[in-house]
Design a protein around this nucleic acid. Sequence first.
DNA 1: AAACGGATGGGCT
DNA 2: GCCCATCCGTTTG
Length: 215
Amino acid sequence: MNPAARRRSARPLPAHPFKPLPAAFFAAATVAVARALLGVVLVSDSPQGRTAGRIVETEAYLCDDGACHASRGPTDRNRAMFGPAGRSYTYLIYGMYHCFNVVTAAKGVGEAVLIRALEPLQGLELMARRRGSDTPLALCSGPGKLVIALGIGSLPNGSDLRKGPLVLVPPGAYPPSGGAAAQGNIKVTTRIGITKDEHLPLRFYLEGSPWISRK
DNA sequence: AAACGGATGGGCT
DNA sequence: GCCCATCCGTTTG
């Protein structure tokens, strides 16, 4: 083995070959980030392997919005939402599922984007094993489902999404998806499953995507 | 195709 | 004690 090869094999491999989205991508207005995240790819590395999916559905949660966990100030649970943008906020819902959010806006402002559905791109077999379902459409078509499929339920709050093991990478990192959603038209509706400020138009999805949680 | 109920536990009043 | 940013199997029309 030559010296260059020895150096290469002695050094740990880079965590992943992707160039993550820059911090500035997240430190913008939350609604703008919620829209810009459509098409972005979420990559999750674990000892079991890599899973990845393209974001097709998001919801914005704003600091003056009754449905937002942060709307009544910081607590032990929601503290990550007030931290720097580009970090994770994950919480337990209904005692059995977790929802994954991307923290947005300026530090000190409690806002985030809920990731509601992914188009599965890589590691479908591992996703199926984790989900207990073989149906591709059922793997990541809901906030609780995608957390299970990517194995990110126990990701610590405040994890940096530019570093891994969970990373957000630009749309072009994986081959473009086909179908109507490839046009990239964004549909706006009210949010799902909330009872406060339910009229606000803060849900966004790729029009024509078969991978969203609900029509 | 839509409606419903059960599972299940932490957060907040 | 009540409220959930959910999901799934079962029932009902």
